[in-house]
Amino acid sequence: MTESANNEDLVMVQTYEIEAGNFTLAGEAASNIKKLLRQLGIDAKIVRKVSIAAYEAELNMVIHSLGGIMRLEITPKEIVLKARDDGPGIEDIELAMQEGYSTATELARELGFGAGMGLPNIKRCSDKLHLQSKLGQGTYLEARFFL
């Protein structure tokens, strides 16, 4: 089940609403997360990893889901990125984790997305990744980055 950061340790939480199919706003949440972490003085390497993961997670929600919420939790030990969406869910998580595998629509591909690098990228950037999905209901992603 989902691990939640110990409430006592939790020092900052930010939530971002992600709209499905809106390519104008796609990437905005990730860009805000990047700015925030930088202003907090988080190490540049970690900022980059979190923002790449946040960007990919955000794009996944824009392309595949019916919309959802992204949540950023910061504790003195780690940064946790949580993304929960309503949508079709992922049929085969193992397959989805493979580089180059994608179920993106024609429209998304025309816009240059859907290269099948999203989840593999998130896995590569994070220290711990938890993915949970139920067909026809939605997906929950939790990526941890140790400070």
């Binding site: 900052m12 700015k35 925030l36 930088r38 202003q39 907090l40 003085g41 540049a44 910061i74 003195p76």
Partner: peptide
């Protein structure tokens, strides 16, 4: 070296306070 001029505070707790 990076020039972290955007950083709000050297201490993360103070930085978070300032951010809020």
């Amino acid at each position: 070296l990076p020039k972290p001029v955007m950083k709000l505070d050297d201490d993360i707790f103070s930085a978070i306070k300032k951010m809020e």
